[in-house]
């Protein structure tokens, strides 16, 4: 950020308060997860890792983590493929009508997920997709598309259209241009979109509550049930693991952006 003014003390104060407001609720689960008590509370006599141990040895928790992970991976593949193709298609045609398509693709982001969940419940029933791996993957994948469309569109906006023309003037076919020129240039946008799509599926609860029950029991679902049934601090431990994992992904995204900006 060259050539911009630094923030004044007031601006800096507000920024810090906002950051704390956002971060504190997340931080509070850390001491709770380290509690030495049997119920959801702050540590009393000392910290203990036994709740982490419980989670990491429980078949139920590990099963849910694995299920969440595979669903998220599959949903990400779906979202990235569809989102990237859509963004590139709109970019290439770039007419008034494609703006409409782009808005349409953002709908899953705009519509409250509970509305979406009710809709899915109604038409997944007859299709036999309720409580199925494929059903949840479809639901998460489709609602993950907007993230990919946004990041890939942004990457494409910074793509010099003359590079495509240059490739074609040298005789490159559409698929060669796509593989050797366009995709390598927008890869950071695609990876960024993939990370967001993954995180979206990884912590999605509302739709899962509607379209899954026993067969598919994702991690957020297990936390939800756990909170409703007993106040086991294992939940806090899971939450910490969840936050840590998400943070890792976002840091990865950030590092990637850094590298492309420097590069």
């Amino acid at each position: 950020m060259h050539g911009t003014y630094g923030a004044g003390p007031a601006g800096r104060g507000v920024a810090w308060i906002t950051a704390m407001y956002l971060v504190l609720p997340i931080l509070i689960v850390i001491p709770v997860a380290l509690t030495d008590q049997r119920y959801l509370s702050l540590p009393q006599e000392g910290i203990s890792f036994r709740h982490f141990a419980t989670v990491l040895t429980s078949e139920e928790w590990l099963g849910s983590i694995w299920q969440s992970f595979t669903i998220a991976v599959a949903a990400t593949v779906l979202a990235v493929t569809a989102g990237t193709l859509c963004a590139i298609g709109c970019w290439r045609i770039s007419r008034r009508s494609t703006d409409l398509i782009r808005v349409l693709m953002l709908l899953p982001l705009i519509i409250p997920s509970i509305v979406y969940a009710i809709g899915l419940y109604r038409y997944f029933g007859p299709l036999g997709l309720l409580d199925r791996f494929l059903g949840v993957v479809l639901a998460h994948g489709v609602t993950g598309i907007p993230y990919v469309v946004i990041t890939v569109s942004t990457a494409l906006a910074g793509f010099d259209p003359r590079l495509e023309q240059a490739a074609r003037s040298m005789g490159a076919s559409l698929s060669q241009t796509l593989r050797w020129v366009i995709l390598p240039r927008i890869m950071p946008g695609i990876v960024s979109g993939a990370i967001f799509a993954f995180v979206h599926s990884w912590d999605e609860l509302v739709m899962v509550l509607f379209i899954a029950s026993r067969e598919v029991f994702t991690l957020p679902r297990r936390i939800w049930d756990g909170i409703n049934e007993n106040l086991d601090p294992a939940m806090a431990a899971v939450a910490v693991l969840l936050v840590g994992f998400t943070l890792l992904l976002l840091l990865g995204d950030r590092a990637l952006r850094r590298r492309t900006e420097a590069g």
Partner: peptide, 14 residues
């Protein structure tokens, strides 16, 4: 364009 076999130097080089 890809079938014309013309060499092209673009504005800004591309």
């Amino acid at each position: 364009p890809e079938r014309r076999e013309f060499g092209m130097v673009f504005q800004g080089y591309a």
